[in-house]
Design a protein around this nucleic acid. Sequence first.
DNA 1: ACAAGACGGTACCGACCGGTACCGAAATTC
DNA 2: GAATTTCGGTACCGGTCGGTACCGTCTTGT
Lengths: 201, 201
Amino acid sequence: MATHARARLLDTAEALFYAEGIRAVGVERILAESGVGRASFYRHFTGKDALVVAVLARRDRAWRDWLAERVTALGGRPLDVFDALAERFARADFRGCAFINTMVETADPDSPAHRVAAAHKQQVADYVAGLLAAEGRAPEPAAALARRLVLLVDGAIVTALREGTPAPAAEARAIAAALLAAEPPPGAGPEDPCAEPAARG
Amino acid sequence: MATHARARLLDTAEALFYAEGIRAVGVERILAESGVGRASFYRHFTGKDALVVAVLARRDRAWRDWLAERVTALGGRPLDVFDALAERFARADFRGCAFINTMVETADPDSPAHRVAAAHKQQVADYVAGLLAAEGRAPEPAAALARRLVLLVDGAIVTALREGTPAPAAEARAIAAALLAAEPPPGAGPEDPCAEPAARG
DNA sequence: ACAAGACGGTACCGACCGGTACCGAAATTC
DNA sequence: GAATTTCGGTACCGGTCGGTACCGTCTTGT
């Protein structure tokens, strides 16, 4: 039998929380759909709040690993982030960003869940800044640009959630391309900074 | 005494829903803080869901009226939308966009609350498209640009919610300025399209 | 002055919430 | 093979959920 109860709880809770919301899913539901006994749940977690934090922490790692894997597979350029997003948006079970959703549902900014969600976005921004630095940009403008790219990412996610189509990823990518072209990295050739960004592929 | 019970219910519910979330606030709370009797509530609304829809519909009108008022006061240009946003972000009770929050909390896309929230964003996009058309842009590119500006608005809102500062409004404004400069309206003078947008004031 | 209606207050309903305690069965460990 | 641990199942707790029914009161229109 082993100690797979904890893993099943995390899997079931993550799916239900993401699909229907944290407050909308009770412990009862999670126990029924995971097949875990009530006592076992409270042996592994002090309560529902701890489960939420554990789910978010695991998803944070998994999501950033997935993003890095997809971006490197697509070419490792900053704009590839938006192509990775498009894949995510096209999934039938897409329901926005779990961390944005958590911050919306958890009003208290001091809540552990809220903190985990906020930290996630910061780490994504750091990753994007790394992609920009790899293009030859200096650290400070890279960090500032990364902030703006993450703003575009969040805007695309919210728009995709509202419209139910992956199109916003391409729109955000186009905006990001214009943004990056306006501030080319120092090592870039003597090309016209007003030129349209090269076709991707 | 008059028939102010309905208005008090809407006021209290709007404040509580926005501050703490729809699911987080029970009818009990709304009755206690509004001073309205339980029976009176169910005389005015068929249930909590109807109250939610009524609150959103009223807020939709009020929010768009507020935006139009602020934008015209600031100059009536498309970029003024972001300066209006900055005022909103600076408020101590700012907790994101009530309609985004509703869509996040209400997972079902067919829910009336979800529909109202989605319709709100579309009407904001139409308003922004009108601002762009007033600058001399053709309808089709104006609508496409408006979509992207609303994406920036949503990104700024989510970022402001996460960081708790009004700074994202200025960042989104800068991105929007680059976006508009890249596609100047046909009537614009022979100025260099690569030039920095003129200082606002 | 009087009737009609909107009002606030309360008791109550079944259902579900998160959480605790206890049980017997199964797997692991020694 | 026996002890320990983890497991699933269940009964139960107080509290709150959304919703209904009924009460007396107070205002308003006439």
